[in-house]
Design a protein around this nucleic acid. Structure first.
Length: 468
RNA sequence: GGUGGGUUGGCGGAGAGGUUACGCACCGGAUUGCAAAUCCGUGAAGACCGGUUCGAUUCCGGUACCCACCUCCA
C-alpha cells in the first residue's frame, strides 16, 4: 500500500494519512457560492483536490472514496444578484451550477460523489441549530441564533488565534444581539423577498457556516477523513464549522486532516476587479487556452505555495503539452512506472515533482508518459485536438487527425517557394515565407524538401491575399 | 496591531545534512542559403547575520523584505 502523507493544518505538520475506514474514505471540500462564473482562483482548489481524489481512488480503489463538494445556493450575494437582474433566485443558481460544471469539466476535474445544495439541507441545519441551543452552545436573540464562542474553549485553534487577540484587533461592528463580538450567526431573519424558511426562531435563513457542518454530517458522518478548502477559509469559515460540528456531536475532531491551498495571484498581484486582472475560467477558455493547459499551469506550483498565473507559464505549458500529445498520440499506455508519479503525489500532493517525472518519461518512453499523464488527470491525446497540426509537403502529406489538409491551397505556394530557393532568389523566397507565416503557417525545409506546418484552426482564406 | 506562510541559478519550480532536480531561456555542437524543428552538450542558485556540525542552500536563532488572513473572496 502506498503511504500518503499530507500537511495537516490542524496539527501544522506533514503526517501520514491513515484512513478511518480504508473501504470508505470521506473527503469534504468547500464549494462555490453560485451567483456568477467561477474565476481562476476558484479553479485552483478544484484541480488540487481533484488530484487528491484521483490519488485516493488510485490507492484505495475507485469505490472506496466519497468526495463531497457543496454548492452554496443561499447567500446574500445571490440575493443581490436577483435584486439587480429581477430574476428568480432559483434561475440564477441553476444557471450558475451549469456553468460551473461546464468549466470544471473542461479542466478535467472529476465530478465529486455528491454535490449537495445548501437549500436541500435546511431541515438538517435547523435541527443542528436546535441541538446547539439545547446544549447551550448557542442562543436565540432578536430573531437570530448565535453561536456562543466562549462556550468552546478551543475556538481559534485551527487558525492559531486567541479570542482576545482577535477582539483587540477587530474591525467589525459589534451587533447589539451578540454576547461576544466574535459570536457568529447560525440563523438570521428574512424579510421581504429574501429567501427564507420557517423555523423555531421565526421565518429566516441560515448563516453561511452551518451548511457545511450539516451537509458533511449528513453525507460523511460526525467525523470524517479530510476537509479541504482555500487558506482564506481557514478563518472564520472552517473555525466556525469546527465549533458547530464538535459541539453538536461531542467529538474530538470534525475532520482528521485539514488541507488548505494557498492563493492564486496574476502577474504577481492579487487577482481583483479593480486591478483589471480578474478573469473567469470561461474567459480563458474563450481566449483559446485549452482546459488541459490551464490544468497544467495550476499543477506547476505546489498547492501550499502562492501561485502566480502568468502568460509565460501558459506559453510554456502549452508547448510542453503539445509536445507530449504528439509523442503519445495513438500510443498504448504503459503503467509499469506509474509508481514514480504516485510516489510524488503521495508526498503531500507534490504535483511539480510529478511533472518532473513526466518530463523524464518524455525523453525515454511515450507509453509511460501517457500513463503518467492520466494519473494527473490530463486528457489523452485522442480526446482533444487543439494541439494537432497538419504537415503539408510536396512529396507526402499527412495529418495527425481529422484536420483538413488544404492541399490545393497550400501546395502551389510551396512549389513557388522551392523554385525561388533553387534559383537562389533568396530575397523573394524570404518575402514569400514571411507572408505565409503571417497566416499562421510555419514554413520550413526538411531533408525531403519544403514543408508547411498547418496549425489547428487554420483559415485558408488568409492565403487568398498572397500573390503567387 | 494580531495570526500564519514565504525568500532557491536570467525566469518558473522541487527534493535532499555531504551525490545531476526538472522545465523554459541562453550559449556551444550536429543540421541549415537564412530560419524553424529535432538531437547532443556546457555553464549558472539557494535574502542577510550568527549558531550547531567534520560538513548546511537543507537544522536552530535573529534581521530585512514579500504575501495571505483578521472585511461571510477558493
Amino acid at each position: 500500500m502506498v503511504e500518503i502523507s499530507l500537511t495537516n493544518t490542524r496539527t501544522r505538520t506533514k503526517e501520514r494519512f491513515e484512513p478511518i475506514d480504508p473501504k470508505n474514505i470521506r473527503v469534504y471540500a468547500c464549494g462555490p457560492t453560485v451567483y456568477d462564473r467561477a474565476h481562476l482562483g476558484n479553479a485552483r482548489p478544484v484541480v488540487v483536490f481533484d488530484v487528491l481524489f484521483r490519488l485516493l481512488r488510485h490507492v484505495y480503489g475507485e469505490d472506496a472514496v466519497t468526495y463531497v463538494r457543496n454548492f452554496t445556493d443561499v447567500d446574500d450575494k445571490i440575493n443581490a444578484r436577483a435584486a439587480v437582474t429581477g430574476r428568480p433566485i432559483r434561475d440564477i443558481t441553476e444557471e450558475t451550477i451549469g456553468w460551473y460544471h461546464d468549466d470544471m469539466d473542461a479542466l478535467g476535474a472529476l465530478r465529486p460523489t455528491h454535490e449537495p445544495r445548501a437549500t436541500d439541507y435546511i431541515g438538517q441545519m435547523t435541527s443542528m441549530i436546535e441541538d446547539l441551543v439545547a446544549k447551550d452552545f448557542a442562543y436565540p436573540e432578536q430573531g437570530h441564533v448565535l453561536f456562543d464562542v466562549r462556550k468552546f474553549p478551543e475556538y481559534g485553534k485551527l487558525s492559531g488565534r486567541s479570542l482576545d487577540d482577535m477582539i483587540a484587533g477587530a474591525r467589525v461592528e459589534v451587533a447589539p444581539y451578540k454576547r461576544d463580538p466574535m459570536d457568529f450567526v447560525l440563523w438570521k431573519p428574512s424579510a421581504g423577498d429574501q429567501p427564507g424558511w420557517d423555523s423555531p426562531w421565526g421565518y429566516g435563513r441560515p448563516g453561511w457556516h452551518i451548511e457545511c457542518s450539516a451537509m458533511s454530517a449528513e453525507l460523511l458522518g460526525d467525523v470524517f477523513d479530510i476537509h479541504a478548502g482555500g487558506i482564506d477559509l481557514q478563518f472564520p469559515h472552517h473555525e466556525n464549522e469546527i465549533a458547530q460540528s464538535r459541539c453538536a456531536h461531542g467529538t474530538e475532531v470534525m475532520a482528521k486532516t485539514w488541507l488548505h491551498n494557498e492563493m492564486l495571484q496574476v502577474e504577481g498581484k492579487k487577482m481583483s476587479k479593480s486591478l483589471g486582472n480578474f478573469f473567469t475560467v470561461r474567459d480563458l477558455l474563450n481566449q483559446g487556452i485549452p482546459g488541459e493547459v490551464i490544468r497544467f499551469v495550476l499543477l506547476m506550483t505546489h498547492y501550499r505555495k502562492p501561485m502566480d498565473w502568468t502568460a509565460e507559464k501558459v506559453r510554456e505549458a502549452e508547448a510542453t503539452l503539445q509536445g507530449w500529445y504528439n509523442l503519445t498520440d495513438g500510443i498504448e499506455a504503459d503503467s509499469s512506472m506509474d509508481f514514480l508519479i504516485v510516489d510524488a503525489l503521495a508526498d503531500d500532493l507534490n504535483t511539480p515533482a510529478a511533472l518532473e517525472k513526466l518530463h523524464r518519461f518524455s525523453s525515454s518512453s511515450a507509453a509511460r508518459l501517457k500513463s503518467g499523464m492520466r494519473l494527473l488527470g490530463l486528457k489523452d491525446a485522442e480526446e482533444t485536438d487543439w494541439w494537432r497540426t497538419t504537415i503539408v509537403s510536396l512529396s507526402s502529406t499527412f495529418s495527425t487527425g481529422d484536420t483538413p489538409l488544404y492541399l490545393s491551397e497550400i501546395v502551389p505556394f510551396l512549389e513557388k517557394w522551392q523554385q525561388l530557393r533553387l534559383a537562389k532568389n533568396y530575397e523573394e523566397a524570404d518575402l514569400l515565407k514571411k507572408r505565409l507565416e503571417g497566416t499562421g503557417l510555419s514554413v520550413i525545409v526538411q531533408p525531403a524538401g519544403p514543408v508547411a506546418i498547418v496549425p489547428h484552426g487554420f483559415d485558408p482564406k488568409l492565403l487568398e491575399a498572397i500573390e503567387l
